[in-house]
Design a protein around this nucleic acid. Structure first.
Length: 305
RNA sequence: GGCGAGAUAGCUCAGCAGGUAGAGCAGAGGCCUGAAAAGCCUUGUGUCCCCAGUUCAACUCUGGGUCUCGCCA
């Protein structure tokens, strides 16, 4: 099993700072586990590391696709796996840092190997849902795959259609795929979580967003639109971007968009915290306890691996 | 200073021929196996501004007060 270290936590919890300090100490690279920092041209709003930071420490899986590409947990699991192998050969301890908990879970615990579903099937199911309604779709799922259906809310179109498309395409219920999935024991993770009081996280989110605006977030969005990307491209559904679409498309009030963006970021942080409560960690720390001593202690722990 | 309108949940407001109140938003709690910065579920008790009066009973009616917002000076 390959030892790896993960650094997780909600947005604005200090992950990057700890990851950078630790990577310097360990003389290794950082693998970003962030579903939005993968996009090129989206730097300010996704709070990517600065140019200097990226020059001092090599970061992987940042700026790997254009904003119109859909990337997912399966892609991440595969891509990160390759980089981990490579780092292992170089004798480096991989540090995986980022706020997309589901990506990290998929990497460590594995995710069932889904075939690529043809677009036509998705479109067909989408249309069917529109005509007969979601309740009926959920009822269909309950017939073919009650195990999956029971655990999906009747309004959760995303998951209902996903389960159905897997059933129709592979002839096997998604819940059976899950059961057949082998336990992944490729990595030996040491998982670190950064947490803080909600109020403080919220405050940091708001300050950081103001800084982003000052740093030219609007220009960044504007140039994305000028490059031809639209509100329908996946990258632009990121928090901090999507809220400004009404401003560019419908002349909504700038200030309202800012408030909306801050609020969505708060909600996002809340969802992350809920997610982390259910995950297990080896070390839970508060951002204010990030210092040289902590990093040195971590270093001593991992140096011999 | 005059006239008018209003004062009810953190915010915006609704409501009651008088029987102690309810929406939206915010917030909170939760779910999560290829869209995860996504998607989805659950969740509303507060001196109904204060004081007095009428009444079996007032947030609801009457009087006074305080404050806020308009318009006029």
């Amino acid at each position: 099993m390959i030892p790896i270290v993960t650094i997780e936590g909600s947005t604005a919890s200090g992950k990057s700072r700890l990851a950078l300090m630790f990577a310097h100490k360990m003389e290794t690279d950082i693998i970003s586990a962030d579903s939005r920092q993968i996009y090129r041209f989206m730097d300010i709003g996704t709070a990517k590391p600065t140019q200097e930071e990226m020059e001092s420490i090599r970061h992987h899986l940042i700026d790997i696709v254009n904003p119109d590409v859909r990337y997912n947990a399966g892609d991440f699991s595969k891509d990160a796996g390759l980089i981990i192998k490579q780092l292992k050969e170089e004798g480096k301890l991989p540090i995986i840092a980022g706020g997309t908990g589901f990506y990290i879970k998929s990497l460590i615990e594995g995710i069932f190997k889904s075939p690529d579903i043809p677009l036509e099937l998705r479109v067909k199911l989408e249309k069917e849902a529109e005509t007969i309604g979601l309740d009926a779709m959920h009822a269909k799922l309950m017939e073919v795959d009650p195990d999956a259906g029971e655990n999906i809310y009747k309004q959760d179109k995303q998951r209902i259609l996903r389960s159905l498309e897997i059933y129709y395409y592979t002839g096997k219920p998604i819940s059976v795929h899950w059961k057949e999935q082998k336990v992944k024991e490729e990595y030996k993770p040491f998982k670190i979580l950064l947490t803080d009081e909600r109020e403080l996280i919220y405050k940091r989110i708001e300050n950081r967003f103001d800084v982003m605006i000052e740093a030219g977030l609007l220009d960044e969005i504007d140039s994305l639109l000028k490059m031809g990307y639209t509100k329908d491209d996946y990258g632009l559904t990121a928090v901090g971007y999507k809220e400004f679409m009404p401003y560019f498309y419908e002349h909504a009030e700038f200030e309202d968009c800012i408030e909306q963006a801050k609020q969505n970021t708060r909600r996002y942080a809340k969802r992350q915290q809920t997610w982390y409560r259910r995950q297990e960690f080896d070390l839970i720390i508060n951002p204010k306890d990030i210092n040289e001593e902590l990093v040195t202690n971590l270093y001593k722990n991992f140096k011999q691996l």
